[in-house]
């Protein structure tokens, strides 16, 4: 073993090319009973430089699945492109969109296939399950994944996740005597939590800011649509009739 370590360098040590960088930003998704919210900021940075104030990190895959990608931007964009390509072949073969739990497994295999030269990205997949429930799947760069109620990832994960643990899982809280915590939060509560998470992350983390993109996926005939009535900066992206519905809300975040 010692022999292996002590190979003498006859040449001057060359600068090793590092194929990765870190482009900042944060993503977040929360699942409700019959909806899912997937959000990300739009700043892209490297070191202390802001490269652009608008580079989307959240992508609509189908009318029931939205993918947020954070980490090394070049890997992220390529990964989304490849996932979309696989979904297109699925559509060719089956004339319908791939269900979200299948997309989640697909993403796992795609990430793990690069186990020894990973996509340096944290993925969060949100949407509506075939049974109509809201879903969030989160992944590590090499494909470990699980279904959860909420997840934050990226630069400000350490700021946002504890806040979510407290507000969504009610960690470190005790219900008032004779009451209990709600099983699922309403859409309007979730939207407020997401917006507050990002304004706070923008305040405290230099890599978060500029803009917020928040995708909302609603199950078929979801009554949650009521809470979207007067949301500022919202537009609908739904492609199908009488199915799930997709909305996006765009907001400004502080640019400093």
């Amino acid at each position: 073993m010692a022999d292996m370590v002590s190979i003498p360098h006859s040449q001057p040590q060359q600068h090793q090319f590092n194929p990765y960088t870190e482009n900042g930003g944060t993503i977040l998704a929360i699942a409700g009973a019959d909806f899912s919210v997937i959000a990300g900021d739009t700043r892209q940075s490297e070191g202390y430089s802001i490269q652009t104030r608008y580079a989307p990190k959240v992508f609509r895959l189908t009318d029931k699945a939205v993918l947020a990608v954070n980490g090394f931007a070049a890997d992220g964009n390529m990964f989304v492109k490849k996932v979309r390509q696989r979904l297109e072949w699925y559509r060719h073969a089956h004339a319908k969109d791939m269900p979200i739990r299948a997309i989640a497994r697909l993403i796992q295999t795609m990430l793990y296939s690069r186990r020894f030269f990973p996509y340096y990205v944290y993925n969060i997949l949100g949407g509506i399950e075939e049974d109509g429930t809201g879903a969030v799947y989160s992944f590590d760069p090499v494909g470990s994944y699980e279904r959860e109620a909420c997840r934050a990832a990226g630069a400000a994960q350490s700021l946002v996740q504890p806040f979510l643990d407290n507000q969504i899982y009610f960690k470190n809280q005790t219900p008032a005597p004779g009451t209990s915590f709600p099983g699922h939060l309403s859409l309007s509560t979730v939207l407020s939590l997401v917006i507050d998470s990002f304004t706070s992350a923008t305040e405290r983390h230099i890599e978060v800011g500029d803009g917020l993109e928040m995708y909302i996926v609603l199950a078929k005939n979801s009554p949650s649509i009521q809470s979207l009535r007067d949301i500022r900066g919202m537009s609908e992206l739904t492609a199908t009739e009488d199915g799930e519905r997709v909305f996006v809300v765009r907001r400004d975040l502080k640019k400093d």
Partner: peptide, 25 residues
């Protein structure tokens, strides 16, 4: 739009590479 040796891309209404990113941008 911008692209570099890592394949990183982005667009904005003003762009600068190298030292320009610090001094001119």
């Amino acid at each position: 739009s911008y692209v570099d040796l890592l394949g990183t891309t982005y667009s904005a209404t003003t762009l600068a590479t190298g030292f320009g990113a610090y001094l001119a941008q």
